[in-house]
């Protein structure tokens, strides 16, 4: 009996300044395969469909259960995590490409440090006095926790930036993930004391006003985070903050 196989097409690029080539691999089908297993199969036998020896494909991956955010890529044109992309559910041949909105490092690996920089720029943290034992944290209504926890599950994968028409080389928009984090920290009793810093940051270039409501982010989010809700909520917060500071002559 002939083995069941399928084809994976991969966009390869050794470096950002080198030429692009597409490679096709024929892989042996097994039940419950995901895209990560495909890439490991290729690493174990890096010969293209035409029998040409290539190199293992470079890709990011870590937790393999969609909580670390590492393995985001374009799979059949859709920005998603490779670990949850099951071969059974994908149209063949499977097409793998790197995310396009971040600087390419190699093959499927991109540099998403922009997002971490933006989290820094927008003060996405709770400024505590120190790690000393100075008692309990503020009380929080369960309803606030139930709103905040889904936002706190953002894995900084970058899929929402990838699909956003306003995130590109012309525009410095921070993207929905960052705005949603600002909302999270502004929601926390201690974080709220410092919301002005975050809102000020989002008023600057690349800030919230860049969002033009294409609402792609929320559809691309693997964690189902209500990103458009966050964008609207923070839009309102920034506006109120802007008007208040203007009236106070700040």
């Amino acid at each position: 009996m002939a083995e069941k196989t399928f084809i994976v097409r991969i966009k390869r690029q050794q470096r950002a300044d080198e030429s692009v080539r597409w490679e096709e691999y024929e892989l042996r089908y097994r039940p419950h395969m995901n895209v990560i297993i495909c890439l490991r199969d290729i690493a174990e036998r890096p010969f293209t469909r035409g029998g040409v020896e290539s190199t293992p494909v470079s890709y990011d991956a870590n937790c393999l259960e969609e909580v670390c955010g590492a393995c985001a890529m374009l799979i059949n044109g859709t920005a998603r995590q490779a670990c949850t992309a099951l071969v059974d559910d994908l149209e063949k041949p499977i097409r793998l490409e790197p995310l396009t909105k971040f600087p390419l490092i190699r093959d499927l690996v991109v540099d998403r440090s922009k997002m971490f920089e933006d989290l820094k720029r927008t003060h996405c943290w709770i400024p505590i006095d120190g790690t000393y034992n100075i008692g309990e944290g503020p009380r929080m209504a369960p309803a606030v926790q139930e709103k905040g926890y889904p936002l706190a599950r953002c894995i900084t994968c970058g899929n929402c930036l990838e699909v956003c028409p306003k995130v590109n080389s012309n525009d410095s928009f921070v993207g929905a993930a960052i705005v949603s984090q600002v909302r999270l920290f502004n929601m926390h009793p201690t974080g709220a004391m410092h919301s002005a810093e975050r809102l000020d940051a989002l008023m600057g270039p690349g800030g919230i006003a860049e969002c033009d409501n294409a609402q792609n982010c929320v559809k691309a989010c693997p964690k189902g985070i209500p990103l458009t809700e966050s964008l609207a909520a923070v839009n309102g917060q920034v506006l109120v903050h802007a008007v208040k500071s203007w009236l106070r002559g700040e």
Partner: peptide, 23 residues
């Protein structure tokens, strides 16, 4: 503003994305 965006309604054909382009 338009010039700063890059529409991608063909690759991500969600309704709101078409609305963005149509706008």
């Amino acid at each position: 503003i338009w010039s700063k965006g890059k529409s991608n309604a063909l690759s991500h054909p969600w309704m709101s994305n078409w609305m963005y382009l149509l706008q």
